[in-house]
Design a protein around this nucleic acid. Structure first.
Lengths: 338, 338
DNA sequence: CGCGTTTACGTCGTTCGTAACGATA
DNA sequence: TATCGTTACGAACGACGTAAACGCG
C-alpha cells in the first residue's frame, strides 16, 4: 500500500468515479491512476469499485471504508507537511474558508483585504454555502475554516471559537408606519406587518419564529431569502418589513431606514470552526486573530488543548464577546422619528 | 513522503533511537533505514532527531509531532488491511491482549484454550502489566485489547465494554478466628486482623480502603501483592487474612478457607477495552463473545456506533451483568462455620 | 578497536508516459 | 464514433543490500 494509491482512490471517488478526470486533477496520466488502483485492489484482495464492462459504476462498501480511512491518512500526511512548513517560516500556502452570505458579503471583506496584503503568497479561497453544505465541505477537507452561526449540532466534530455576537435590525422604507411609532418597534408591532427575512436553516431551530411564539404571536413571513441584499430589494419594493443581521445594514442603504431590534430576538453568536486534528499554519492563526481580536494564537492554542467543545465554551464564558453591526446607531430615539 | 519512511521513523523512535535495532526489527538493512529517514528529513526540511556526531541522541519537538501523526497514519493503514483480510475470510492474524494478573491467571485460560483450538492460525499473545503499563501499551498499538477493572480515567480513549462483575472473597487458614464467627465477617471483623491484599493502583481511588473508611475503620494492611497466588502463600503462612478477587479463589486451594465478602466492598466490573478507531477482525469479535457471552458481534458493533463512553454504558445499563467467581458458594452460612 | 552511522555503488523492482487496443453507449 | 478504461513497452527513478569508510567512546 502506498500513499499515492490512496490519493488516487480518493481522487477517483471525489471525481464522479471518472479516472480520466481524477488523473487530470492529479497532474498525471490516466493509465497511471488506473494501474495503481488496480494494484491496490490486488494487494488488498478486494474490489474497491464496482465496474460494468470497463467503466466504474460505484464504490463497494469496503471501498467506502477504505476511502474514509484514506481521508484520515492523507489528512495527517498534510498535517506533517504543515508542521514542516510552519517551522521553515514558509509563507506560501492555502487557506480556504467556507461561510455564509452575511459573513462573506459584510464582515469578511475588510479582514481578507488586510490579510492578502500581508500574505500575498497564501492562496485564499472562499466558499459560500448553506450550513449543510459547509458541513460537508469541511468534513471532506475542502475547506479549512467554517465561519457561521448556530448549527451546533450540524458541526459536532468542529472546534468552534466564538468570534462575535450580533442582533438583528429592522429595515423599512422611509415613510413606513413603523418609523412613526416614536419608539423602537416591539414584536407585537412587527407581527402586524408582512415580514421579509432569511430562509430558516433546515435543521437548526428557528430562533426567529420562536421569539414570536414565546409571546403568542405568529409572524407573517411573506418572503424569505438567503441573503440580505435580496431582502433589501424586496423591502424597497414595499413587500414587507425586513429583518436582517445588523452587520448587513449599511449606512449607504439608500431608500431604507434601520430600526433597532436589539432585545426582540435572541443574540446570535458567529463562530469560527475547524477540525480538531488540523495543524494550523502560522498565517491561519493570524487570520483568526485578525477576524476576532480576542482569538490570539495563544488563546487558540489553549482551546486546541481542550478535550471537548464544552471546555472551549467554558474558556470564553467569562469574556464579553464584541458586538458587531450598526444596529444601535440608527435607533429612532423616542420622539425622534427617522 | 512515503509510508515506509514513517514506519522507519517510528521504529527508530520505538527502539531507543538505535537505527541498527530498528532495521533488524523491520527485517531490512540498516543503511536503508538511515537513508530513508534522512530523505524524509530533507523533504520536510527539518530535523526529526537530534544527533551528536553520528549517533542519534534524541527526538526534536517536531519529530515528536511527526511520530504522533505517523502512529495515526500507520494505524489506519493497518485498519485498511484488516478490512481486506476480514473480507477474504483470512484466518491468519494476530491478537494481543493486555491484562492484569487476576484475569490472566484465573479467567482467561479457559477462553484462550477454546479460542486457540478454533483459530489455530491466529497468533495470540498476552501481556501482563499494571493499569498504567497497559494504558501505555494500548496507546502505542502494542496490544489490541485491554481486559481490566476500574481505571476509567486511565483509559479515557478506549471503548470499554462491561464483561462481568465480581466481589471479593476472604481467605483464611482453616483454624482462623474468622471461621468460628458463625456468620459472614463484617468490615469490623476484618479491621481487627492483619490483612493481605492487592497492591493499590497508583492512580485509581482505592475502593478497598474507602470501604473501611466509610465506617470509620482503618484496615491493618500488612502486605500487598500484585497477584492472588502470592497473597495466598502469605495467608497460608499465617501473615494475615487474605482479601482477593472471587475469581481467584479455587476449590483446590488446600489449606485455605474462603469466606463470603459480598457486600463488604463495592462490586467491581471487569471490562474489555479497545481503541474506537480500531477495525476488529472477525476472530476478535468471536473472542469477545467467548469471553463475555452477552457481547455478541452485533452488540459490539452497536457499541462501536456510539459516540461516547456514556452511550456505551447506557447500552448496558439495563442488563444484569453476570457475576464471576465462586465466592457465593463457600459462604459460611449462619451457624454453619466452615 | 568495537559500535553504530553514513557513503558508495550495483542491482532490481516500480512508476510513469506514450501509444495502441478494447469496450460501451 | 466518441468516450473511457486497460494493456504494452521503454525510459527514468528509487529502494535495497553489500561493502567500505568514518566518528566516537
Amino acid at each position: 500500500m502506498k500513499l499515492q494509491q490512496l490519493r488516487y482512490v480518493l481522487a477517483v471517488a471525489e471525481n464522479g468515479l471518472n479516472i480520466t478526470a481524477a488523473a487530470e486533477r492529479l497532474h498525471t496520466s490516466q493509465p497511471a491512476v488506473s494501474k495503481q488502483i488496480r494494484q491496490l485492489e490486488d494487494e488488498l484482495g478486494l474490489k474497491l469499485f464496482t465496474r460494468r464492462g470497463k467503466s466504474l459504476t460505484g464504490i463497494t462498501v469496503e471501498g467506502q471504508e477504505v476511502v474514509e480511512r484514506a481521508i484520515v491518512i492523507l489528512r495527517e500526511v498534510e498535517n506533517i507537511q504543515r508542521i514542516a512548513q510552519n517551522l521553515k517560516q514558509e509563507s506560501r500556502g492555502v487557506l480556504s474558508i467556507g461561510t455564509t452570505h452575511t459573513q462573506a458579503r459584510y464582515v469578511l471583506p475588510r479582514v481578507i483585504t488586510a490579510f492578502r496584503e500581508v500574505y500575498s503568497d497564501v492562496s485564499l479561497s472562499l466558499h459560500q454555502g448553506t450550513s449543510e453544505q459547509l458541513a460537508d465541505m469541511v468534513e471532506s477537507g475542502l475547506i479549512d475554516f467554517v465561519i457561521a452561526t448556530g448549527g451546533e449540532r450540524l458541526f459536532p466534530e468542529l472546534l468552534r471559537l466564538p468570534c462575535y455576537r450580533w442582533d438583528r435590525v429592522i429595515l423599512v422604507p422611509p415613510d413606513h408606519d413603523l418609523t412613526r411609532l416614536g419608539r423602537a418597534p416591539t414584536l407585537q408591532d412587527l407581527a402586524k406587518h408582512p415580514l421579509v427575512t432569511y430562509v430558516f436553516s433546515e435543521k437548526g431551530e428557528s430562533s426567529f419564529k420562536s421569539a414570536f411564539a414565546r409571546q403568542g404571536l405568529v409572524p407573517d413571513v411573506v418572503f424569505t431569502a438567503r441573503d440580505a441584499d435580496v431582502i433589501k430589494t424586496y423591502v424597497r419594493l414595499g413587500m414587507g418589513v425586513g429583518v436582517v443581521a445588523a452587520m448587513a445594514q449599511d449606512v449607504a442603504d439608500d431608500g431604507l431606514v434601520a430600526l433597532n431590534a436589539a432585545g426582540l430576538f435572541p443574540r446570535v453568536t458567529t463562530w469560527l470552526g475547524f477540525r480538531r486534528e488540523a495543524v494550523l499554519r502560522n498565517y491561519m492563526f493570524d487570520f483568526i486573530s485578525r477576524f476576532a481580536g480576542h482569538l490570539d494564537p495563544w488563546t487558540v492554542r489553549r482551546a486546541l488543548e481542550t478535550s471537548s467543545q464544552a471546555d472551549v465554551d467554558a474558556l470564553f464564558a467569562d469574556q464579553a464577546l464584541p458586538m458587531r453591526g450598526a444596529g444601535g446607531e440608527l435607533v429612532p430615539e423616542p420622539g425622534v422619528p427617522a
